[in-house]
Every structure is written in C-alpha cells, then in structure tokens.
C-alpha cells in the first residue's frame, strides 16, 4: 500500500488547543507525551517519524526519546493501518472459549489474511492482542474504538458486514 504522508504540522488549531489543555495539568511538558501521541494518531491514523519529530519539538524532547516511548507502547501505530483496525484477544481465558477461531475467521473474511497485514482494499488490518480485560465476554474484539463483546465464529460474518 503506497502512502502519501501529510506533511503539514499536526499541532495547529483545535489540536494544539487540546494539547495545551493537557500541558496545563502537569508540572512537566514531558507528561503530555502520551496524550500528544494520541492526538496525533487520531488526526493522522498513525505516528510517522515526522510526527515524532514534531511532538519532540513541541514538548522540548528529542526525536529519539519520543521514538523510544512510541515503540514501548503497542497502541501507537508506527505504520499506516487499514480503515478498520481490528484487535482480537487470544490470551488464555478467551483462548479456551474459541478466540483463535474468531481470529482466523476475521482474517479470512476481511481479506487481511495475515495478522498485522492490511487487506488489499486498504480497509482492514486485523491483529492478535493480549488480554483486552473483558474475559467474561469472550471473545472481545476492538474495531477502532468500538469494543465488541462476546464475538463467536458464528457472529463474524455480521460483524464484517457491519463495517464493510
């Protein structure tokens, strides 16, 4: 998938205002790093090296430091992902309730095929994640910010149709 990166600054207008509100809370600028990365990801869909450099500039950090933090946390995308980013829990409690089958069905029916890969139409990226914290509602699946409980193999076709 070829990507044209938006080279305009992220932190302008309303996004900058949102960041400034966070900066007002804490005694250090650095404490606004995770919130700043969330804001940037919401705007651009992922965190590019260029965005990391901008975040570093705005918060008075080095780009290398920002990259070290970005790479520690699993939810910041260091590459563009599909329009629908799907996270499937396969940790033990969900695993014994059929999570691996749900993952397989999602990979097949979205056309993403391999975990972490994006479908050729650019619509879907499906990944396997560790515990989503909803073990009594196996299998939980996150589609972007929609947290969907109790997904079974049988429910996958309807789920895929809903977002298609």
């Amino acid at each position: 998938m070829s990507v044209t990166e938006d080279t305009q600054p992220v932190f302008t207008g309303a996004v900058l205002e949102a960041l400034q509100a966070v900066l007002g809370r804490y005694p250090t600028k650095q404490a606004a790093l995770l919130p700043a990365l969330w804001l940037a990801q919401r705007e651009r869909g992922w965190i590019s090296d260029r965005v990391m450099a901008e975040v570093a500039e705005v918060l008075g950090l080095t780009p290398a430091y920002v990259k070290g933090v970005v790479t520690f946390y699993t939810m910041y995308h260091q590459h563009p992902v599909g329009k629908h980013f799907v996270q499937v829990c396969t940790t033990s409690p969900c695993n014994i309730c059929g999570a691996e089958g749900v993952l397989k069905a999602l990979l097949e029916q979205t056309g993403a095929r391999d975990a972490g890969a994006t479908s050729p139409d650019g619509n879907w990226t499906v990944i396997e994640v560790e515990c989503l914290g909803a073990c009594g509602f196996a299998t939980p699946v996150l589609v972007n910010d929609d947290f969907i409980e109790s997904v079974t193999v049988e429910k996958v076709p309807a789920l895929v149709r809903k977002y298609r």
Partner: peptide
C-alpha cells in the same frame, strides 16, 4: 494508557504518566 500490561505496576504507571 497506550497498551502495556506492565503499566498496571504502580511505579511503571507513574513513569507512564510522566511521559
């Protein structure tokens, strides 16, 4: 948070808030 089980450890959580 941004996806890290270890941040449930109390001092890791504080480091995470500190950026």
């Amino acid at each position: 948070g941004a996806g890290a089980y270890i941040c449930g450890e109390e001092t890791a959580l504080m480091n995470s808030i500190e950026g």
